[in-house]
């Protein structure tokens, strides 16, 4: 059911179109089960940034404080998005992985399910 409005044809502007982000795009990242961090993270990234940079330069800053983080075996991590599981390639960029503006990616680390079972 479309919105009912006083003026026919009403449509709000897309306030978060990628053009508004000065050459960057938003990426949402969620470490599954690690609810201690409270929420999936939202960060701006250059579309051409390689996945490897995300792993090496971005994730430690976000999640490094968690006791599980240092124990992650990165080759065993299960990656997925709303479209289903995917296997990242560290040398390929965000765009080459098919990540659009505001894509959410999730990673699951089986066996590392949160500190003492509490996120």
């Amino acid at each position: 059911m479309p919105v009912k409005a006083i003026k026919p044809g009403y449509h709000g502007e897309f306030r978060d179109r990628v053009e508004n982000f000065r050459g960057q795009q938003l990426l949402n990242i969620c470490w599954e089960k690690h609810t201690m961090f409270g929420w999936p993270m939202c960060i701006p990234v250059p579309p051409e940034m390689p996945f490897g940079a995300l792993l090496e330069q971005v994730l430690p800053g976000i999640y490094g404080a968690h006791p599980d983080f240092a124990r992650i075996k990165w080759n065993e991590v299960q990656w997925s998005s709303a479209k289903g599981p995917f296997t990242p390639d560290p040398s390929k960029s965000m765009v080459e992985h098919g990540f659009k503006h505001k894509t959410q990616i999730r990673f699951r680390t089986p066996g590392l399910d949160g500190h003492n079972g509490a996120g």
């Binding site: 969620c30 201690m36 939202c42 976000i62 404080a65």
Partner: peptide, 8 residues
């Protein structure tokens, strides 16, 4: 413990 990253 601190979280410094903005949320989705």
């Amino acid at each position: 413990f601190t979280n410094m990253t903005l949320p989705q």
